[in-house]
Amino acid sequence: MLTAIISLTGLALVFGLLLGFASKIFAVEEDPVVDKIDAILPQTQCGQCGFGGCRPYAEAIANNKANINQCPPGGEATIMQLSDLLGVDPLPLNEEHGQHQEKRVAIIDEQTCIGCTRCIQVCPVDAILGTAKHMHTVITEECTGCDLCVPACPIENCILMIPVQSDIYNWKWKAPNDAR
């Protein structure tokens, strides 16, 4: 009886220590869920979700403070990915935050620009080049189409948001069920 208790306790101790050390030594560093959510979001940093950017929105989702359907630029695809990741039911996009649009880029009308630098200050990805009292321009490749520069601009029709032109390099076949 006593030997049984001692041997079992001993075994439990040994294995407990073994497992304890193993969990420390072979610990897998996993991405916290915020990083995973942030990786799915489109990184336009537009703030249409009601948060200050993609990362704050990701944090809000992780803390159950926001729904997964508040990202208009990401649209249906992002909602599907988030629902897969978090194991929640997909929801239709919340239209209060805006509608999913085709990808657009900002273009500055060089004739109209007065060189006020306001757009440069709000661009979340530093995609606008220029300096005070000199014409500014958008690096189209870097523009995420977030729209934030448009309200910042004091001149009317200076910054225009234009849809990305379709060419043979970015053209896609349409889903046959969409066509009908």
């Binding site: 489109p42 990184q43 950017g53 695809a77 990805v125 870097e142 995420t144 076949w173 889903a175 046959p176």
Partner: peptide, 27 residues
Amino acid sequence: QYFRYAKQEIWAQEKEQQKSDHARQRH
């Protein structure tokens, strides 16, 4: 047509993912 659509959609999504990773870095 469905398969061509799906292939291109996946390629486009990969490209988008690269772009958004890039945007995140810049941000």
